[in-house]
Design a protein around this nucleic acid. Structure first.
Lengths: 239, 239
DNA sequence: CCTGCCCTCACCATTTTTGGGGAGGGGAAA
DNA sequence: TTTCCCCTCCCCAAAAATGGTGAGGGCAGG
């Protein structure tokens, strides 16, 4: 277990980082402090934008982006479906593409062991804080046993810091929907057509349309489906 | 700062909790250890189911459910839109309903100070781990300064434990979509109509329809909007 | 090698949604 | 008190989505 004082130092170091590039050096510092191979922070925006920083080689970073490995990387894919931090060993490496990806990653200097902490935002934002090392299972298990909790906390602090630098990623000031609009959009999102929804809400279909159009307008949506998507990604309705 | 050994004990206590009711006693134990008023774990499913445990009075719990305060509780509303743990003081209490809610809560024995840690799952699941106390601002600020990090960690462990008891809440075995289906559904979710999407993907509108129908079938959706909603809530597409 | 899944293309009739107009009553905030 | 937003209701024509059926080539895993 890293001494508590040391963890404090790391967190304070993150707190004192004042520029986005600072995260890069904080990452390097973290790696040194924990004496592991790599530390990587990866962000995927709800708009599909991505941002990352870490200690992987430029070559691998570039290769990753060029090949759009985001789509097949089992770490991303697996963590996207997962609640909790996960050891790479527990991911699904069964597909041929995944194994090829791993081989290539290792060839580019990525270690064989990893521990990734998924972090989610209110609007579908997704970040991943990964610690990577090259060692045998026993050593790694011991490392995670010892440092896993620190890594979780650091991941969250890291994410918080990254967000401060990019206010763009903050949710838009939630233009809220009226209760009726929420009702309408929720039922629409559940797959009912307007006649059914109107019936279900005991209002006329015409009235229902007003709600839908109003919601569409508020959300700046091009059509009903778009409005549902936006309402969901903003957490205005839950389906 | 709570001694590290003590935090360890709490987390181990959570680890050794083997029954759902056990969480209730773990909650009480946490409260005793941290000597604060209340600790509450609250869960809202993507299906709208909710589950909670904590040290609030039965009366308040019942009242809360009866009145469906989930809809107006600024803690829920605020944290749902937020990335990071938040002090209750920083929430929006400006609406009349919110202030009335707070007064009533306090009348039911809820403390005036709170710190809530939002935790999100891959399919829109949302959990909130709240620490609540009745004290002045200075004391509370000091408490959070000291224990905030522990509370974040404990919240995550608590959530992990709660999920183990309710495998129902685990994501359904993700019936995945093919790449083209993902493309199609994503563009549809962005509000484009079929002609635009087909054009955008450089395929015929007929082919596009096959993807949409296929996705709809895989997702068990009643129509395109429903399919988009399901794909989003399962994290298959990100908009 | 066979099976299953993925990608691509096509038609027709029917149902559903959309766009744009107008109108009145009620409640809460400024 | 006035203003703004919310809830409710109505018509019509044009545009878009849906349901059902069919077909061929390609690639990967059992």
């Amino acid at each position: 277990m890293v001494k508590r004082a040391r963890l404090e130092n790391i967190l304070e170091d993150l707190d004192s980082t004042t520029k986005l590039e600072g995260l890069q050096s904080a990452t390097v510092a973290l790696r040194d402090l924990y004496q592991i191979h790599h530390i990587v922070y990866h962000w995927v925006d709800s708009a599909g934008d991505q941002y990352g920083c870490g200690t992987y080689s430029d070559a691998w970073r570039q290769r990753y982006l060029e090949q759009n490995y985001l789509r097949i990387d089992p770490v991303i894919q697996g963590c996207y479906q997962r609640f909790h931090p996960v050891d790479w060993k527990r991911l699904d490496w069964s597909s041929k593409a995944a194994r090829a990806f791993l081989s290539e990653a290792i060839a580019y200097g990525v270690g064989n062991q990893g521990y990734s902490v998924p972090i989610r935002g209110p609007n579908g934002q997704f970040a991943l804080f990964t610690s990577n090392h090259d060692c045998d299972d026993a050593y790694w298990n011991q490392f995670i046993e010892t440092h896993g909790r620190d890594l979780i906390l650091i991941g969250h602090y890291f994410n918080r810091k990254a967000l401060e630098f990019e206010p763009v990623r903050q949710p838009e000031p939630a233009q809220s929907l009226s209760p009726r609009e929420v009702d309408a959009m929720t039922l629409i999102a559940l797959g009912y057509n307007r006649a059914q929804v109107a019936n279900s809400l005991s209002i006329s279909e015409h009235t229902l349309r007003v709600y839908i159009e109003s919601a569409r307008f508020k959300l700046g949506a091009l059509n009903t489906t778009h409005a549902v998507a936006r309402a969901m990604s903003r957490g205005l309705i839950v389906v």
